[in-house]
Structure formats: C-alpha cells, structure tokens
C-alpha cells in the first residue's frame, strides 16, 4: 500500500502546483461573482439564483477539470515516458493506476472545496442561512466527478487518444442526464431485441440524475436514503470502470 499512497500523494502535489488548477478555481470564482449581477434579475429569488448558479459553476469547472485531466492522466505519462521510471520498480499496475486516479481526485476535490468556500461566503454575505443540505449536494457533485473521471480514464486507455476519449466521456455525461428518457424509450419499443439493446444501454450509461440533489432544494422528502443510495451507486459504477481500466492497463506494453 506504500506504493499506492506514494503515487497518490505525489500526483496530488503535482496537480495542485499546475497553473490550470488555479485557473479553474479562478474561473469558478468569477462565475460566482457574475451570479451576483444575475441575481438582481431574480427579484424575490435572489438567494436561489446565487445558490443554483454557484453550485452549478463548482460542478461544471470540476467536471471540466476531471474530463481533461483524467483522459491525459496515463496517456501523457505514456507519451512523455515518465511511466517507465515507475513501472520499472516493484509497483503493481493496479496500485499505480488507482494511485494516480486517487491523487487526481484529491486535487480536484481540493479545488471544489476552495470554490465551495468562496460560494458559501458569498451566500452568507447575502443573508443565507447555512443548511447541511448544501454539504450533501456538494458531496454528490463530488461523486459525479468520481464517476465521470473513471469513465474518462477507461476511454483514455481503450482508445489511446485524448480527443476520442474526451468525446466518449462527454457523450456518456450528456446521455447520463437522460437516463429516465432512455428507460422510457425502451418501454415504447415493440421489439424484444430493441428493448434488450436499450435496456443494456440504460444500465451501461451512468445515471447522473442520482447525483443532482441540488435540483431538489425545496423538496425535503427527497432526502432520506437518496444520498447514501446515490453514493453506493456511484462507488459501484466507478469501481467497475476502474477494474475494467486496470484490466486494459495490465495488458498494455510500453
């Protein structure tokens, strides 16, 4: 496990020293600042606009970060040959890959936390009363990052091209927000083969709606087991994709 923690820790350090990391946080901050101007149009719903735009900005910039970073996480190492100096040591490929991914996630979560602190400060300044639901909503956004990152990492090793892996990841991410519609489509197709194909597709695509707690601020009954079930779903989904990625990675030659 020392090797896993070492890879994770130094990947985290490397990522938080990149200029792009601060760029993303800065853009998130600017977006939140802009939401103050937009909230003026909200009349009675000023806080709601600040809340929605801010949490969307945090998620969007974190997704942008994970999309670009995860597809290049291993590909860049292969191209620059930095991977040689790691894999020629007694490090298992499983520990290397999961360590790299964990380090990247830690850096992205640190960025999300920094943006969330800016957001909460902005909300409190405008008279908002802190609610634990904000933390849970952020927690599920982080879970979404975990899922999207594992998909991006899988495609990066599957296609060996950053552009095509990013395209596949965006495709999965967009379709993941229409899981309900895909399921409905399956019920409307008369043929069994069609139903089966849509059914498989429905389960392969991640259901991103499970992580959108921020869409239900005013519906307290949504809480309950939602958070924990969504958390379990996200972990299981990512674990499957990470295991598939490890299987691909173990077969790779450098």
């Amino acid at each position: 496990m020392t090797t896993f923690f070492s890879v994770a820790y130094y990947t985290f350090i490397e990522n938080i020293r990149k200029k792009i990391f601060y760029g993303l946080i800065l853009f998130g901050g600017v977006m939140m600042g802009a939401s103050v101007l937009l909230s003026v149009l909200g009349g009675q719903q000023t806080l709601r606009i600040l809340l929605d735009l801010g949490s969307s900005a945090i998620e969007f910039f974190a997704l942008l970060g994970v999309g670009f970073s995860a597809v290049t996480l291993i590909l860049e190492e292969m191209e620059s040959k930095t991977i040689y100096l790691i894999l020629t040591r007694p490090v298992s490929r499983f520990h290397y890959l999961t360590g790299r991914y964990a380090g990247l996630l830690m850096a992205l979560y640190a960025g999300m936390l920094a943006m969330a602190l800016m957001h909460v400060s902005l909300l409190l300044f405008n008279g908002w009363v802190f609610h634990a639901r904000y933390v849970l909503s952020l927690f599920l956004s982080a879970e979404k990052i975990l899922v999207v990152g594992s998909v991006a990492l899988f495609f990066s090793l599957f296609s060996s091209s950053a552009v095509s892996s990013l395209s596949f990841t965006v495709f999965f991410w967009i379709l993941g927000h229409f899981s309900g519609e895909i399921n409905y489509l399956g019920t409307q197709i008369p043929s069994l083969a069609g139903k089966l194909a849509i059914g498989i597709f429905y389960y392969v695509i991640p259901n991103m709606q499970y992580f959108n707690l921020r869409d239900f601020w005013d519906v307290p009954q949504v809480m309950g087991n939602w958070v924990w079930l969504s958390f379990a779903y996200g972990c299981a989904y990512s674990a499957v994709f990470i295991l598939l990625t490890v299987m691909l990675f173990k077969r790779k030659e450098f």
Partner: peptide, 28 residues
C-alpha cells in the same frame, strides 16, 4: 535493477527531493 531511459522525463512540478523520495518509496 536501476534503469535510466534515454532523455528521462520527470514530473516537472515536483522538487528534486520530492521526486527522489517518491522513487525511494516506490522502490520500497
């Protein structure tokens, strides 16, 4: 085995001490 590749590339945002510590940990 100690290996030195042609024109070795390293994590450029790490310091010399950090990168060697990482390799030391990985070599257990």
């Amino acid at each position: 085995i100690g290996f030195l590749p042609e024109a070795p590339y390293f994590y450029r945002y790490l310091t010399a001490r950090e990168i060697l510590t990482m390799y030391g940990n990985l070599s257990q």
